[in-house]
Design a protein around this nucleic acid. Sequence first.
DNA 1: CTGGTAAGTCACTCAATAGTGACTTACATT
DNA 2: AATGTAAGTCACTATTGAGTGACTTACCAG
Lengths: 201, 201
Amino acid sequence: MPRDRASTTARILDAAQTLIARDGVAAAGINAVAEAAGVDKVLLYRYFGGRTQLLRALARERAVWPALEVPAAADGDATLAGDVAALLLALARALRENPLARRAAAWQLAERDEFAREISAARAAQMRAIAAALRARHRVPPFLDLDAILAVLAGAAVHAALQGAAPPAGGELDLRRNDDWLRAERALRRTVEALLGAPEG
Amino acid sequence: MPRDRASTTARILDAAQTLIARDGVAAAGINAVAEAAGVDKVLLYRYFGGRTQLLRALARERAVWPALEVPAAADGDATLAGDVAALLLALARALRENPLARRAAAWQLAERDEFAREISAARAAQMRAIAAALRARHRVPPFLDLDAILAVLAGAAVHAALQGAAPPAGGELDLRRNDDWLRAERALRRTVEALLGAPEG
DNA sequence: CTGGTAAGTCACTCAATAGTGACTTACATT
DNA sequence: AATGTAAGTCACTATTGAGTGACTTACCAG
């Protein structure tokens, strides 16, 4: 192990990320992270200050919340319903495929510590960006409460991704299986289209 | 403290319930529960067998997942959309007002232990009951994937209730406030009506 | 009144947690 | 070559977690 602060901090963050993705945020304790990184735990305190600050650094420097391609320019073909559906499906799929983001999302729903707040902030910023982009691209009818609709439907997307990571309890959709997942996606797409004006899907 | 097994076990379950409602499932450790119940921890092992079995007993004997009034008889006035909306809103409200159920729901989304499975089972059973009741009461058009729709929209309801228990990160809806909560409820109700055929709400 | 059973108490073990103080060693600058 | 600084190592504390063995005491049946 060379004496290289930059590579050491990177390895610490990598280790924390891996542990969280595999076993959840609670599993990323100082001792566990230090051991996984192959580094003395004193260095975690020196470089980050403690567990809280380690997690904060992780939330800020790594993509703990998935980044989405927000449609930017105006596009004559695009409909509000189509854009919303595309964004929500992209969100659901990103969470489904990114264990770190999934664990972070679950943590954000369950806990109230600083890490949860950090994730909430990233999430809220993204929602704001999406809402702004949609309003820039489309004329949103004034009777549509776009913020509330986005909050509710994004919740559905997030929830589906989280639920899909857990074994189902029988009789329900098994969102780990691809066919059931597609049924859920379809339901979500149809929902958006029914709500926001529907080209046939 | 009288020598009374029944009342002791009840106090243990009460204590576990209170701790979970206040600080989450992880806070309901053997030591913490025993202390909160005013009981020696040996009794937890004697009467339940260990932490895992304690939680299982709790899941089975207390209402860890909120019970809903599922509409039973056929009612000429009832519409599918109306029934679904009513059920989803009842679910969201029940979770919003029941901290134990909220913590359980969050746990079920985040963890994979036996307690999580127990909650999933209760949840899945409820969903099955609801779907069955709806099919008994209404003719569901064959092109509607009712199971998928219920899964996605119940997810939205659950997610909203969980999100509403956490402080918001700015710029978003604050679902702890009643007016924002009502906006979300409205969005959900309109969504259901748009999807399933809409009497004006 | 006696004895067995179950309720409750006490005092531990073992492992893992966060966090700290004191030390050694590499390395770049002077 | 001397030296200060920062990287890395070692050994420790204090707390908390789950779980167990051995004890005392209340109470009910005979």
